[in-house]
């Protein structure tokens, strides 16, 4: 199935991605951001906060935004 995936980590991008049916939010996160902690990100499905075990549906809009990100000076 296809999802609309918004990744605000690194350079940031938004695109349609193909994933297996019945994938949960937690599994999707692990697949896309392996080795990262979900606690360090704001995850929204269809613009709403979501539990980790929620099963994603075709056409869902999932956004992942880092909540621990370092600023700089100048």
């Amino acid at each position: 199935m296809k999802l609309f995936y918004i990744n605000n980590d690194g350079a940031g991008f938004a695109d349609h991605v193909e994933v297996e049916d019945g994938i949960t939010v937690a599994a999707f996160f692990t697949e896309k951001l392996a080795g990262r902690k979900a606690d360090d990100f704001l995850i929204r499905v269809n613009r709403l906060p979501t539990p980790a075990d929620q099963v994603l549906q075709p056409g869902d809009r999932i956004s992942i935004t880092p909540s621990k990100i370092e600023g700089a000076s100048a």
């Binding site: 918004i6 980590d9 690194g10 940031g12 938004a14 935004t65 621990k68 990100i69 370092e70």
Partner: peptide, 29 residues
Amino acid sequence: LCAGEAKDALDQAVADGRLVDAFQLVQSV
């Protein structure tokens, strides 16, 4: 704000019109 690591994602979010993402990135910094 000097966005540091968030700069590229912030530029992209504004370019795409994803205001919530942009505001969230600023808040994260």
